[in-house]
Amino acid sequence: MHEVHLDSWLREFGPRGSERLEAESIAQVLDLLESRYPRLRYKLRDETGELRRYVRVFVDGKDVSATTGVATRLTGDRTIDFLHSIAGG
C-alpha cells in the first residue's frame, strides 16, 4: 500500500490529506486519484498523459519527474509526493 501526499495547492481539486492506494506505476496512481477526485484530472498531467512542466513527483524522496516520470514502476510500500516546482515570479 502506497501513501500519497499532494501539494497543499491541489487541495482545491483533490484529497485534503494523504491518500492510501495500491498501484503498479505512477500513471496508475494518477488514474486512481483522478477516479476518486475527478476535478484532479489534467491538473498533474495533461491529456497526452505526461506530467505537467512544473509538477514534480517524488518516490520515497527521490525525484523521478524528469527520469522515469509517469512510467515509474512501484513495488512494495512507497511514499509518493506530488509537488509543484519552484517557478514563477
Binding site: Q28, G49, E50, T67, T68, G69, A71
Partner: peptide, 10 residues
C-alpha cells in the same frame, strides 16, 4: 491511454 508496461517514459 497510459502505457503501464513501458519501463521508459513515453
Amino acid at each position: 491511454k497510459p502505457e503501464f508496461n513501458s519501463d521508459s517514459p513515453s
